[in-house]
């Protein structure tokens, strides 16, 4: 455990937030995943929900069965003994991405911004293995980090009103796949034909916090074989 951590603080009358480190990293993510699992095992009947994120875990509890001092003490014990080793059942998955100007309308701008060629941006993006740091924004939306600093780029000034399902995007040093069509302000660089969220499947999301994700470049024909062609023509430029 990092020096001075965990820090536990009151977030509301029935939630506390636990910080595990100053900055996010793969070890912190493993620690958060392990802590979540332990909390679920030991305190499940007193917990309402857990929200893991980059370097923190929000613990929402049933305040009519446990008070904040007791839960803080319990969490402290669990976190102090939690491992920062990767979860034994943690997954590593590889996702296909069709990177191109037609599937990634912000590629050209991103290349210009980063003073790289489009091919360099693409190859840097899929040469990194990412950690799922957090899930949120929409069901199944996984925040993957960290991208190589050479391809970091801030969000669009004006978000698009419609980003297609499967869009692969970059915002600062994060990357993500939009699990369903939604508004969004990230820079679009490609399309992934793999379903990230299906409420009727179990499990409903392909990845969880702490999992590893890497990308593999595919061409137009492979994408059309795997994916849905209509997405190509429906992207807001």
């Amino acid at each position: 455990m990092n020096k001075g951590f965990p820090k536990i603080a009151i977030a509301s009358e029935n939630s506390v937030i636990v910080y595990f480190s100053e900055r996010p990293c793969a070890k912190t993510s493993s620690l958060i995943a392990n802590t979540s699992k332990q909390l679920n095992n030991n305190l499940s009947n007193k917990l309402i929900d857990l929200v893991p994120s980059y370097h923190s875990l929000l613990v929402i509890y049933n305040a009519s069965t446990i008070d904040h001092l007791t839960i803080e003490k319990e969490i402290h014990t669990i976190v102090s003994n939690a491992s920062d080793k990767e979860l034994a059942n943690g997954k590593s998955i590889e996702l296909p991405v069709y990177y191109s100007l037609e599937s990634g309308p912000d590629l050209r701008r991103l290349a210009k911004h980063t003073k790289l060629t489009i091919d360099e941006v693409i190859s840097i993006h899929h040469q990194t293995e990412y950690t799922v740091y957090a899930m949120g924004f929409a069901p199944g939306f996984a925040y993957l980090g960290e991208t190589d600093s050479r391809i970091a780029m801030p969000r669009l000034c004006t978000p698009r009103t419609m980003v297609p399902k499967g869009a692969v995007a970059i915002a600062d040093r994060q990357t993500a796949i939009y699990p369903s069509q939604s508004p969004g302000g990230w820079n679009l660089i490609g399309l992934c034909p793999t379903t990230m969220f299906d409420p009727n499947q179990h499990p409903s999301t392909l990845v969880e916090v702490g999992d590893k994700v890497s990308f593999k470049a595919i061409n137009r024909d492979e994408f059309i074989q795997l994916g849905e062609k209509y997405q190509l023509s429906s992207i807001e430029r």
Binding site: A11, S15, P24, V51, S53, Y54, S56, L58, I60, G136
Partner: peptide, 10 residues
């Protein structure tokens, strides 16, 4: 700030 969990009423 790094994004983190948001409780009801935050």
């Amino acid at each position: 700030m790094l994004s983190e969990g948001i409780c009801l009423g935050a």
